[in-house]
Amino acid sequence: MASSFVSMFVVFIVGILVGSSNAQLSTNFYCETCPQLFPTVRAVVEEAIAQEARMGASLLRLHFHDCFINGCDASNLLDDTPTMLGEKTAAPNLNSVRGFEVIDQIKSAVEQVCPGVVSCADILAIAAKDSVNILRGPEWEVKLGRRDAMTASFAAANSSNGIPPPSSNLSALISNFQSKGLSARDLVALYGAHTIGQARCKSFRPHIYNDTNIDPSYARANQAICPSNSGNGDGNLAPLDPQTPTTFDNTYYRSLVSKQSLLHSDQELYNGGSTDMLVQTYVSNPGAFSSDFITGMLNMGDIMPLTGSQGQIRTNCRRIN
């Protein structure tokens, strides 16, 4: 009985601490200290996407890959040092996450209008939001007030509970998201981010050659891009959404229903399991997808943020001050 009480008390205290940390995030955090923040970030993101539409997906992915490794703290932006192996070369990030130079440009522009004020972690959140909206997706008010980590973790980025690999089945995906406080609804909605962007042949080769839950003509079309032998064409790219790869919309879910998903993990969301109904909802109701995606992004942005006096405000996102 005493042990049970202690366990409940610990859970209660952890809940208070997490809630307190997240409560410090607010949509008006920089209203007085950096009133030009949003137009400054937006201008750089717009220019980057105008030069390369794929960059919008890359900036969104940077935020996702940051939050899923030890929380939303910009640890994935840190370069390696003689005493620290960062996250950029971890398996889920190597040759996958990109756009670091755009974040550098945003940080430089923000430092000119309000030096030493805005964290790199918050810049990632704003850039992700702007990328979605610029590519015709929904708009929302992003919560801010995060601070930056002073270290990164190669081991955490490589862990089985880090970024879900493209080979994941549905139960593994749900478990991974639940471990970060995200629901199955958050999972399905956030994976809708794959309505933009591309994937490397190495990531989708097993699905197009080995799986049976894939449209044969779609598989053959991608086999022309991705040879069957490992190592040959690993870096070749194909769109995650074959219909509208540079527009943020709900066609990704239509592709799932048609068994035209590029990744095994994506098709798991519509494969006779518990998330099938959600996928069908997003197919028939794009407004429901937009609403749930916004909720999912806000929930993801609440994963273990550093706030208050924790961490620091980096002046260069690639290194600690």
Rank of each mutant, 00 (worst) to 15 (best):
G162Y: 03
H207N: 09
P164T: 06
K202W: 14
R200V: 13
G181H: 07
S171L: 09
S159I: 08
P166W: 05
S203F: 14
N169G: 06
P164A: 03
I196F: 09
G162M: 06
F177W: 10
I208R: 00
A172S: 14
A189H: 04
L190I: 13
H194M: 13
D186I: 09
P166M: 03
K202G: 08
N169P: 04
S160R: 10
Q198A: 15
S168C: 10
K202Q: 15
S203V: 11
N176A: 12
K180P: 02
A193F: 13
R185I: 13
Q178N: 15
R200Q: 15
P165H: 09
P206R: 08
H207R: 11
V188S: 01
L173N: 02
P164V: 06
I163T: 07
P166H: 04
F204L: 11
V188K: 01
H207T: 06
I163F: 12
F177D: 00
C201S: 09
Q198D: 15
P166V: 04
C201I: 11
S203R: 13
I196Y: 01
N176E: 07
N161E: 12
N176R: 11
I174L: 09
D186K: 09
Y191K: 10
K180L: 12
I208L: 05
K202A: 14
A199W: 02
G181C: 09
P166E: 03
S160Q: 12
I196M: 10
L190M: 15
A189C: 08
A193R: 06
K202I: 15
R205L: 12
C201G: 06
G197Q: 02
S175D: 13
G197W: 02
S175K: 14
I174W: 04
L187G: 00
S203L: 14
L182G: 03
V188D: 00
G162L: 06
G197S: 08
F204H: 04
P164D: 00
S203Y: 14
G192I: 07
V188I: 12
T195K: 05
P206Q: 09
S159W: 11
N161W: 10
H194N: 15
P166C: 04
I163V: 13
S160N: 12
F204C: 04
P166T: 06
L173H: 04
Y191A: 05
L170E: 01
S179C: 12
L190P: 00
A189G: 03
L173P: 01
S175V: 11
R205V: 07
P164N: 00
N169V: 05
L170P: 00
H207I: 07
V188M: 05
G181F: 08
I208K: 03
P165V: 10
P164C: 07
S183L: 10
S203E: 14
N169M: 03
I196H: 00
H194T: 09
L182F: 08
V188W: 02
L187K: 04
K180M: 12
S160I: 11
D186M: 08
D186C: 10
S159K: 09
G192K: 06
A184H: 10
A172C: 08
A199D: 03
F204Q: 05
I163P: 03
A193P: 04
S168M: 08
A189P: 02
S167H: 09
H207D: 05
S159Y: 08
S160H: 12
